[in-house]
Every structure is written in C-alpha cells, then in structure tokens.
C-alpha cells in the first residue's frame, strides 16, 4: 500500500474502485444521518459512515488512525450516543412544527451554497503533486513509531494539555450528571411498617387478561367482567393510558363459542331441541 501511495499523483485501480464504492456508502450514510426521523437510525448510519472513513484512513497509509477510528469512534463514542438515546427516550422525535418560518429551506440553501464554495475552492487549488507516505512511514520503522516520535518530541506539550483536557471532561461529566439526594433513604424497618399501614397488604393483582393479553396497560377483569383499577399502575392510570379490553374479550368469547358451536353442530341440536 505504501509503495502504491508513493506513486506520483495517481492511485492504483484497486484503490479507485474502493474509493468510489465506499465513498457512495459514506455519503448515503451521512445523508441518512441527517434525514432519518429516529435518532437510533441516525446513530447507526453515522456508525456506518465512520467505519468507511476508517477504511479510507487505512488506504491513505494512516494505519494507526484507521484502527483508532474504529476503536474510539465506532466502538466508544457511537455506543455512548446509543446509550444517551436510550436514556433520553427513543420516542423523543423531532417536532415537525417550524419555529422560524422557512428555516429549513434557508438552511438547505446555505448548505448547498457552502458546499459549492468549498468544492470549487478545492477544484481551483493546484493539488497535483502527491508525495505519498512511503518515506515518512518507513523513516522510524513504521507508522505507529513515526507518530510516537512526533508526539513525544515536537507535540509533547499539546499531548500533555490533551491529558488535562480529558481529565477535566471526565470530572465535568460526573458533575453534570450527578444528583444530590435531598432526603434520607428509608431503612428496611420503615419500609415494612409503611407497607403494613397501607391499604393493600397482599401483593397487588396482576394486569392482563388470562391467555389473551399480558400487557401492563390492560387492566385485569373481575369475575363479572368489569376492569379492576388496582391491576394497572398509578402512572398509567393518571395518564389515562389504560386499554380497556373488557368488552372486546367478551365479544371474542362470544365469537369463539359461536364458532365452536358451528363446528360441533350444536345449533342443529338446539334447533331440534326447540322443535
């Protein structure tokens, strides 16, 4: 790869094929990051784009960065994103209401103009001579050794500052997400006493209708077919998110009886009995 990269201003055909195939994948991933409605889908397509970029780093002779890209970006950062999506809630979708009028179209226009300017700038620059990383990589015995010799000599001060930055970020994240306990934690004795003093001594009845529904938002039915309030949790009751299936299950029972009656020919018997 390094020998190929050193070859003047043209890459090998293999690298060209790889670039065009994976470049299309990267652009599609980037577009779906922006356009997907759910944050989880955006995160997954961004992870795909980052893996493609890692392959490009490897193709450009940056072996260390290619591996670090996979380990740090797709391994750590994107998983952190997925954790936060899980915490914040997958349902927290974008509001489609525009607070500023025509903001989306203006933003898309700005993006298009910016892209045209950027690409025209690169096109106008004279970037024809490519030295390749062949000599730079072999100078100290390899890519990683070359990077190490630069980091610990020329860039050692920046490297130390980076360590301070990481420590500060860690402490900052801990401070931001830490919550102080405002009241004393109850001990086991107090909890058991509170429970005995409450109205319901045995465990609460389970939600769901036997053999048909077992979701937590469906109240269990009492023997006379009316839904029982106790079986659904307080939060769902307050939100009014209870699905009442008492009528539905009675209807289904009726339909079931009718079908089994038809199959067994019970109607005829009943008619005969009526006669």
């Amino acid at each position: 790869m390094t020998g190929l990269a050193a070859a003047a201003s043209q890459t090998s055909t293999g690298e060209a094929v790889q670039f065009w195939l994976l470049g299309i994948v990267a652009v599609i991933g980037a577009l779906s990051t922006v356009l997907m409605k759910k944050a989880v889908h955006s995160a997954l397509s961004l992870a795909g784009t980052m893996i493609v970029l890692a392959v490009f780093y490897l193709a450009n002779g940056a072996y260390f960065l290619g591996i670090v890209q996979i380990v740090v970006y797709t391994g750590a950062i994107m998983m952190l994103f997925l954790f936060v999506v899980m915490l914040v809630g997958v349902t927290a979708a974008d509001s489609l209401k525009e607070t500023l009028k025509g903001q989306r179209w203006l933003a898309a226009g700005c993006g298009l103009g910016f892209g045209v300017l950027l690409i025209a700038g690169i096109g106008n620059a004279s970037l024809n001579s490519f030295n390749g990383l062949g000599t730079a990589n072999t100078e100290h015995g390899g890519n990683v050794e070359g990077l190490a010799s630069l980091i610990f000599t020329k860039y050692v001060f920046a490297f130390e500052i980076t360590g301070a930055l990481l420590i500060t970020a860690t402490v900052g994240a801990m401070v931001l997400t830490h919550r102080e306990r405002t009241e004393r934690a109850k001990n086991q004795r107090e909890m058991s006493e509170e429970r005995v003093r409450g109205k319901q001594l045995p465990p609460l009845p389970a939600p769901g209708v036997y053999a048909r529904h077992n979701a937590v938002d469906i109240p269990g039915l009492l023997p006379d077919g009316t839904p029982s309030e106790l079986t659904v949790m307080q939060t769902l009751r307050n939100r009014g998110q209870i699905r009442d299936v008492s009528n539905e299950s009675l209807d289904q029972l009726k339909a079931l009886e009718q079908r089994s009656g038809e199959r067994l020919g019970r109607d005829n018997e009943e008619e005969e009995v009526a006669k």
Binding site: F19, V27, A30, L31, V34, T49, G111, F114, G115
Partner: peptide
C-alpha cells in the same frame, strides 16, 4: 472532495 461533501452534509 469527499471530505468537503461530508462536512457540508453535517453542517446542513
């Protein structure tokens, strides 16, 4: 060019 395109998509 690819980097410019990705940067533009991200900015938009």
């Amino acid at each position: 060019y690819l980097a410019a395109l990705l940067f533009t998509i991200g900015a938009a």
